[in-house]
């Protein structure tokens, strides 16, 4: 038989054989079916297990049931059953309200609008808002991932200008040729590599040395 855990709470010793394992308060909660939903599965099954194995706990639960039944038995309020009686009571109540209004005027009321979700506007506004949010998200996504064509051109131009000046300072004839070749490459690396290769082919060793020295190498 699986031993049932001590349900008397932390710090409290397990009940001796003649006492209930579970405090009466817990049995009352069980009786009133107000056990918190998150505990329902585990705790309820534990309590059922205790009831099966502990006559003392069963006794506590039964005594609580008896007391509740006894109190309920004191309920001896006898209500009138006649519909005519309630029609009269209703008429008396509404007449009292009419008299009060005649004497004091209507109570001040602030006109109430039904909450948005009641009016059905909330749905429209919610869809509109969702649509707008989606549009903004799409635009932002496109904006962030837009290919940066202009950024590659500008540095390329500045690198080319710099390189052109360097070459021109060594060999003025290379400047014109450099400008002609500039626009025919797809990437910065291609252009620089090809330019360097072309130029280096035409330079003398002395000119090449001078060039590299000016470039800081």
């Amino acid at each position: 038989m699986k031993p049932f855990k001590n349900m008397r709470g932390p710090g409290r010793p397990a009940a001796p054989a003649t006492e209930s394992f579970v405090p009466a308060e817990k049995w009352l909660e069980h009786l009133e079916e107000e056990i918190e939903p998150q505990c329902l599965t585990d705790e309820k099954s534990d309590l059922e297990m205790v009831l099966k194995n502990s006559p003392e706990d069963l006794g506590v639960l039964e005594s609580l049931k008896r007391v509740r039944a006894a109190v309920k038995s004191l309920d001896d309020v006898a209500l009138p059953e006649s519909g005519h009686y309630y029609d009269n009571l209703h008429a008396k109540i509404m007449a009292a309200i009419d008299d009060d209004i005649a004497m004091n005027g209507e109570p001040e009321r602030k006109p109430q609008r039904a909450p948005l979700f009641k009016r059905g506007l909330f749905k429209q506004q919610a869809f509109g808002l969702a649509g707008m949010t989606m549009m903004i998200a799409i635009l932002a996504f496109v904006g962030l991932n837009k290919p940066s064509v202009t950024t590659t051109i500008a540095p390329q131009a500045s690198i080319e200008e710099n390189f052109e000046r360097k070459i021109a300072s060594i060999d003025s004839r290379a400047g014109a040729r450099f400008a002609h070749d500039m626009g025919s490459f797809e990437s910065e690396e291609d252009f620089l590599t090809e330019s360097a290769a072309q130029r280096l082919k035409q330079l003398s060793s002395a000119q090449a040395d001078a060039m590299f020295r000016s470039l800081g190498r």
């Binding site: 009571l89 109540i93 009060d100 109570p107």
Partner: peptide, 13 residues
């Protein structure tokens, strides 16, 4: 009961 409904009507705000 009558007085309670009257108060409820007056104080509904």
């Amino acid at each position: 009961v009558q007085e309670s409904f009257l108060k409820a009507y007056q104080k509904l705000e």
